[in-house]
């Protein structure tokens, strides 16, 4: 295996990995997961089993692939040149994630500012309406969906904001620890970050449960319910992924994988965590508060 002692383009050998079967198997696993899901939502009994096989394949491949990358990293395959590739890659991956959330925020802005006012103002503007007695306004489930109670901002959601903002601070504190070679600070900071993330998810679960059982607020509660659950749901999914990644980083820190100079994986996960944090701030202001 070729390693790269020198650091600058032009002199170094860039690390080009050996042929690998992982990408192909990962793609096959994703195919199975998608196929199983399609069959499941169309009531074919084989669906869940194919999904399970796909998910197991994906998880196994992620373990293998990331394990291989960590091994390569620990055996000195990557120098600054490769490191820069990973940094650029992570930045543009997060950029694509931002645009994924942008789609759902757009749906929120569009319905609040365009489709709901139009549906409510038909009688005034056109003299006719398909929806007798519907006047629009926000929050709304639309003309025909069932009654619900909107989620208030200053209860659990405010606590969740505090939790996530603190976790952003603790992960930065952990990073400072890493830069100072203070391993205790590094690990305590990471542990607190994971703990705050888990606490956030627990609060979110309580909130969802409350919404479904007490407030009549479900995915089916018109555009309010749809945008609320899709935005907070995808955010929660990202928090979960982030917490898993932070846990891996914590375990790797305990194994002494990172040095003050070289710790791209730590930074990548920290960036991801801050991204999730910023999305939450937007959610808190635009979905819960305003």
């Amino acid at each position: 295996m070729s390693s790269s002692p020198a650091a600058t383009p032009g002199q170094a050998h860039y690390f080009v990995p050996q042929p690998s079967i992982y990408p192909f198997i990962l793609a096959s696993g994703m195919f199975m997961l998608a196929l199983g899901f399609i069959l499941k939502i169309n009531q074919f009994p084989a669906g869940p089993w194919i999904m399970l096989a796909g998910a197991a394949t994906i998880i196994t491949m992620l373990f293998k692939w990331f394990g291989k990358v960590i091994y390569e990293n620990q055996t000195g395959a990557y120098a600054d040149w490769e490191d820069r590739s990973f940094r650029h890659g992570m930045i543009w991956f997060i950029a694509s994630e931002v645009m994924f959330f942008a789609a759902f925020f757009s749906a929120l802005f569009y319905t609040r500012n365009i489709s709901v006012p139009q549906l409510g103002g038909m009688l005034a503007q056109h003299g006719v309406t398909l929806w007798e007695g519907y006047t629009g306004g926000w929050p709304t489930a639309g003309p025909k969906a069932s009654h619900f109670e909107p989620m208030a901002a200053w209860g659990l959601p405010a606590i969740n904001t505090a939790l996530l903002l603190s976790s952003g601070a603790t992960v930065t504190w952990a990073h400072w620890g890493l830069l100072k070679n203070n391993r205790f600070q590094l690990m305590l900071g990471l542990f607190l970050t994971v703990a705050l993330g888990v606490a956030f998810m627990a609060c979110q679960a309580v909130e969802y449960h409350h919404a479904y059982t007490e407030m009549g607020l479900t995915l089916g509660s018109g555009v309010y319910g749809a945008t609320f659950f899709m935005l907070t749901g995808f955010h929660g999914f990202h928090v979960t992924l982030g917490a898993v990644m932070l846990t891996v980083i914590l375990l790797r820190s305990m194994s002494g994988h990172f040095s003050a100079e070289r710790h791209f994986a730590f930074e990548a996960v920290a960036w991801y965590w801050h991204f999730v944090d910023v999305v939450w701030l937007l959610l808190f202001v635009l979905v819960y508060w305003l």
Binding site: F101, A102, T111, S115, A141, G220, A226, M230
Partner: peptide, 24 residues
């Protein structure tokens, strides 16, 4: 994101694209 909304409108009861729920 758009096809995900389509999927949830089809199978999970959301109203992104249905005027009855305030969508469009």
């Amino acid at each position: 994101g758009a096809v995900t909304m389509l999927l949830t409108d089809r199978h999970f009861g959301t109203h992104f694209f249905s005027a009855a729920g305030g969508g469009d």
